[in-house]
Design a protein around this nucleic acid. Sequence first.
DNA 1: TCAAAAGTGTTATCCTTACACCCATGT
DNA 2: ACATGGGTGTAAGGATAACACTTTTGA
Lengths: 301, 301
Amino acid sequence: MSGARAVGAELIAVLVAVTAGTPRVLTIEDGRALPSGPFALEHRSLQSGLRAWVEEQTHHPLGYVEQLYTFADRDRGGEEERRISVSYLGLTRELPATVEGGEAGWRDWYGRFPWEDHRAGPPPAIPEVIAPALAAWAEAAPDGALRAARRARAAGTFGLDGRPWNEELVLQRYELLYEAGLVPEAGGGVAPGAPMLSDHRRILATAMARLRAKIKYRPVVFELMPPSFTLFQLQRSVEGIAGRPVHKGNFRRLIESQDFVEETGEIAADTGGRPARLVRFRGDVVDERAVAGSKLPLARS
Amino acid sequence: MSGARAVGAELIAVLVAVTAGTPRVLTIEDGRALPSGPFALEHRSLQSGLRAWVEEQTHHPLGYVEQLYTFADRDRGGEEERRISVSYLGLTRELPATVEGGEAGWRDWYGRFPWEDHRAGPPPAIPEVIAPALAAWAEAAPDGALRAARRARAAGTFGLDGRPWNEELVLQRYELLYEAGLVPEAGGGVAPGAPMLSDHRRILATAMARLRAKIKYRPVVFELMPPSFTLFQLQRSVEGIAGRPVHKGNFRRLIESQDFVEETGEIAADTGGRPARLVRFRGDVVDERAVAGSKLPLARS
DNA sequence: TCAAAAGTGTTATCCTTACACCCATGT
DNA sequence: ACATGGGTGTAAGGATAACACTTTTGA
């Protein structure tokens, strides 16, 4: 294997917080980019490098951190030097202060992916805009077999023709729209949703997919909650991340049966209805239960 | 964020094949290391770089490829240059020829992880060697709380004290043994199993865990099978990867109900018992079913 | 009185798991 | 005969999803 080995290493962070049931992502450049920085020699590991850099910038502790994906782009830096980008997902407990010196801010992640929000049923943009555009793309295929394959792929990923909606296929949907030329990043621009620079929207899609998959079998939602909260607030956070409604009764039973929370003894009166008990997360059971996972009961979209 | 950005990039491959129900991994250095190579400028992406390099070396096509983890070690290369290592899991359909010019070969992965093979029940090494050593490590903790935490961690990961065995916790078990100083890589050497250079055994553990998790919800086993096979051979492959027995009747029903295979019309007579129908994998259903996944029915160990 | 959320109870259904049994072949 | 694997039927138990209903507060 030949070729120069000199490459730069870059860390890209998808930092997620949830406020009032809305998942938000830390962005810079007026929402068009994810925060990133070089990986420096003095750090023990990639993960500690990311932690140090994020906490230095946001002055906020970072909860759960998980590596997403590593890729090499030849676009930037010319032919002389390749850049290796390592992307991370980070969950933070509260809404931190804005990054220093910047056009930085926390944005609702559905602003970038409007078709992913099925909390109030399928978004109108899917039947009205996306499905017809994908149908046209399928019909434009050179041969019949490819046409059928494209139709099946569109139907499966977007839940068309009566197929069920699978909220975990965030990345597959974005890549399909990209391939079909329906997002600005790929030249076109039919699909709704604000574009981002370079491949940052793809990285965000990866993070969303990972998080949506993870909340179903690991109690990571609690990393996004304040010290005490009501079960309904917890449900709203889960719904925000999953992008679909959750069955109330079953959700409560499931959470309580797994002993993930304990009552604080206090009552939240400002919930809009009957006052609710406040609970806190029991971090101790997680260590023991590192195995089992949480599970969450969804409802029909 | 300061510091030089000059780093080297390295690709590390965990290539897995299954022969007669035994999972094997391609190693070099007489089994002590995983194959690795530098990432070169001319490659389009990390993944294509890996594919090109592996196929050039082994002269064998690579099936399923998946990125595992990226890390930076400061040990090698001194303080001047850090190396970024990107590890990959690759599945190959048959047993390829040995890597050119070398002490390379395919090794049973249980040679490196004897405690992971529960196909014939829990290995004797767990109650006889590992459990006592972990108990001693727990007792050596400075305070009572830490002692209890260590005991709980050992019991949970290794299925002690009547806890269920979870075959997916390969990495957690290796890291526990490492922390407890029971593997040669960490200085000690009580636990059985051949050590490997650097952190290669940790990378292998990551690959095993990923693959064991994946076969439960994605039809990746078929990537390891020959063009036609019997259902029992398929079951043996799954058992080899999962490291635990599978319920025969339920396994067959599950595979067939998902239409993953179709009959070739031929009969295998050399199976040792009643001749079995040969089947082949239906690659076409996977595209459609990119969503659902496979599921596999385990049996009591 | 109504809206909104807090809670609890119950049922139907499906999936998982296990047990049991017969069939066909080679030694 | 028996060991080995092929192949099918069926029932118990638990998890899941759905529906229905009461309670408590504020506007």
